[in-house]
C-alpha cells in the first residue's frame, strides 16, 4: 500500500495551485509541454517557410538569421520541419497512450475486481505483450501492412496496454481490501459500480502520472521507429526521419542532426518533469502532515 501514490484528499483549488507553483519540476515541465503543444498548434496555421517547396540551391545551409536552424538536403527550413514534425510525434504518442489507457485500465480494474481466472488471464496477457518490444510489433505490423504512422501508433499502443493494466490493477488491488470499499459492498453496491465510484477516482492520479511517462516514452519510440523507416513516411516530416536523413550528411552539415535531436530531448524532458512534478503533488505521503 505504502508504495503507491494514491490521490491526496481534495483541498481547495487555491491551495493546490499554490503548492503546484512552488514545485519546480511541475512548473518547468508544464511550461515546456505547453510550449511544444503551442508549436504544434501554430504549425497548422503558420511556419516560417513552406516545406513543400524545395529550393535545392539553398541546401544544407548552417543556421543563420533567415533560417534559424539552417536548411536540409532539399533546402527546406529545418525550423519549419521541426514545427510540423512535432504534430506527428505528439499525435502518435498521445493516441498510443489513449489506446493503452482505454484498454489497459478496464482490464486492470476488472482483474482486480474479479480476481481468480480473469486476474490470471490478464496477468498472462501482460507477460505475452511484454515479450514483444514495441519495435518488434512494429516490424511485424509493417511486414503485413507496409510502413506508416498508423503502424507506429498501433505498435506503441499495444505495448502501452499492459503498462496501464498493471498500474490500474496494482492500484485497485491495494484499494479493494480497504474498509470504505467494504462499506460500499455492505450497502449492496456491485463490483462495477464500486469500481466507478470508489476505485477509479482514487487511482486517477496514478494513471495520470503513468500517462505522462508513457507519453514521453511514446515520443522516444516513435522517433526510433521513424528513424528506421517504420514510422511516418516522407514527405510527412518526422523528427526520427530527419535524423536518419542527417546521418549520412553529418560530416558536412552536423547541424542537420543537432536540432531534431534537441527537439526530442526537450519534449521528453518536459513530459518527464511534468510527471515527476505531478507525482510529488499528488502523493499523499508528502503532504500528509497538515
Amino acid at each position: 500500500m505504502s508504495d503507491l501514490a494514491f490521490a491526496a484528499p481534495p483541498t481547495g483549488a487555491a491551495t493546490f495551485l499554490r503548492r503546484a507553483l512552488r514545485n519546480r519540476s511541475f512548473v518547468t515541465g508544464l511550461a515546456i509541454t505547453a510550449l511544444v503543444a503551442l508549436v504544434a498548434l501554430v504549425s497548422f496555421f503558420w511556419t516560417p517557410y513552406d516545406i513543400t517547396h524545395l529550393p535545392v540551391a539553398e541546401r544544407m545551409k548552417p543556421p543563420s538569421a533567415s533560417n534559424l536552424f539552417g536548411t536540409d538536403h532539399f533546402g527546406r527550413d529545418i525550423f519549419s520541419m521541426i514545427m510540423i514534425g512535432s504534430r506527428n510525434s505528439i499525435a502518435v504518442a498521445l493516441i498510443a497512450v489513449g489506446i493503452g489507457m482505454g484498454i489497459g485500465v478496464p482490464l486492470g480494474c476488472a482483474a482486480a475486481a474479479r480476481g481468480g481466472w480473469l486476474d490470471e488471464a490478464v496477468m498472462r496477457f501482460n507477460d505475452i505483450v511484454f515479450a514483444f518490444p514495441a519495435l518488434l510489433s512494429a516490424i511485424m505490423i509493417t511486414a503485413i501492412f507496409g510502413p506508416g504512422a498508423v503502424n507506429a501508433i498501433i505498435a506503441i499502443g499495444i505495448f502501452n496496454i499492459p503498462v496501464f493494466a498493471r498500474v490500474a490493477r496494482a492500484g485497485a488491488l491495494a484499494l479493494w481490501p480497504r474498509e470504505f470499499i467494504m462499506a460500499a459492498r455492505v450497502a449492496g453496491k456491485g463490483a462495477a459500480r464500486i469500481t466507478v465510484e470508489h476505485i477509479l477516482p482514487n487511482i486517477v492520479s496514478l494513471l495520470l502520472v503513468q500517462g505522462t511517462i508513457q507519453f514521453a516514452l511514446g515520443i522516444l519510440a516513435e522517433a526510433g521507429l521513424s528513424y528506421v523507416g517504420l514510422g511516418a513516411q516522407p514527405p510527412m516530416p518526422s523528427w526520427g526521419r530527419m535524423l536518419f536523413d542527417a546521418q549520412t550528411r553529418m560530416m558536412v552539415a552536423p547541424h542537420l542532426a543537432l536540432f531534431p535531436g534537441f527537439a526530442i530531448v526537450i519534449t521528453v524532458l518536459g513530459l518527464n518533469l511534468l510527471g515527476d512534478g505531478l507525482r510529488d503533488l499528488l502523493d499523499p505521503r508528502l503532504n500528509r502532515e497538515r
Binding site: 494514491f6 490521490a7 491526496a8 484528499p9 481534495p10 480497504r178 474498509e179 470504505f180 467494504m182 462499506a183 455492505v186 465510484e197 470508489h198 477516482p201 482514487n202
Partner: peptide, 15 residues
C-alpha cells in the same frame, strides 16, 4: 444491517 470498522482513517473514500 450495518457495520462500523476499526480504522477511522481507512473507512472513507477520501475523495
Amino acid at each position: 444491517l450495518q457495520i462500523v470498522f476499526q480504522d477511522p482513517y481507512g473507512s472513507f473514500n477520501p475523495r
